[in-house]
């Protein structure tokens, strides 16, 4: 059988297109079976032994050159504390123990199994690593902020301005960012590579934060009830809260 050059090129073109797009269309972000899958457990009772404590936020923001911007509308934050009613608006009910309702706790990127931010990003600047960490490539980010609209947890921050003047000190081991890109918690992927725990976990004075493979976290649960933020959205968040 002879083949014209034209038909060969046409078929090659079609195959190339299929090859380029098929993996992205069919692929899922969920890590494959048997892979490591990181998660964070927050023991709220332990966390609230020190009300008003800000150690996790301070340690994280120092380690990652997160600027301290006074205007709350333009703040950049990777981990911060909120009241129970703001973290879990639908969990509040009259029989909820007063102590639980008065809890506050850290909020951060939930490193979802099926993150909407990754789904909508038009450049692949945010992506899921094989170990389940939702990571950011700030060099590829075009600053469209679609991921911020997509995140149902408000975990993403945009650099509305050059963040560097708002740094008190610069951590040399971690890059600073430029204006016009989005950033968020990366589960300290840079520290995990050197065998260290995330900065927030290390800094917590009450050992309320436990980081590790999701299957192993079960050992560290301090209560009967473990909940996640907005599980009904199907994102499968991987920050767990023990009441």
């Amino acid at each position: 059988m002879t083949r014209s050059r034209r038909s060969f090129l046409a078929d090659a073109g079609v195959l190339t297109l299929v090859g380029c797009f098929a993996p992205r269309l069919l692929g899922t972000d969920a890590p494959a079976e048997g892979r490591r899958r990181y998660a964070l457990l927050v023991n709220l009772a332990l966390c609230n032994q020190k009300p008003g404590c800000q150690e996790c936020r301070i340690a994280c923001h120092e380690a990652h050159n997160v600027p301290s911007i006074p205007d709350p509308a333009r703040e950049v934050k990777w981990i911060w504390k909120e009241g129970f009613e703001r973290i879990f608006p639908t969990e509040v009910n009259p029989l909820l123990p007063e102590a639980v309702r008065d809890f506050s706790g850290p909020v951060l990127c939930n490193h979802c199994d099926d993150p909407p931010c990754v789904r909508v990003c038009p450049t692949g600047a945010t992506f899921v690593r094989p170990d389940g960490i939702v990571a950011m490539d700030q060099h590829r980010c075009i600053g469209c902020r679609y991921c911020m609209a997509a995140c149902p947890y408000g975990a993403r921050s945009f650099n509305f301005q050059d963040p560097r003047p708002f740094l008190e000190a610069t951590e040399a081991d971690y890059p600073t960012r430029t204006r016009g890109v989005v950033e968020k918690c990366d589960f300290c992927s840079e520290r995990l590579g050197t065998g260290r725990q995330p900065a927030c976990v290390e800094a917590c004075p009450t050992q309320a934060l436990v980081f590790g493979e999701v299957a192993e976290l079960a050992k560290s649960i301090s209560s009967q009830r473990v909940i996640r933020r907005r599980p009904e959205l199907g994102t499968s968040p991987h920050v767990f809260y023990a009441l």
């Binding site: 038009p122 980010c141 469209c144 650099n159 016009g180």
Partner: peptide
């Protein structure tokens, strides 16, 4: 609207068919 308008071609360099954008 872009924070980094000079990188707008990244949308074509890194096509992301799962994004409506």
């Amino acid at each position: 609207d872009l924070g980094q308008p000079s990188r707008v071609m990244n949308v074509l360099l890194h096509p992301s068919p799962r994004s409506p954008m």
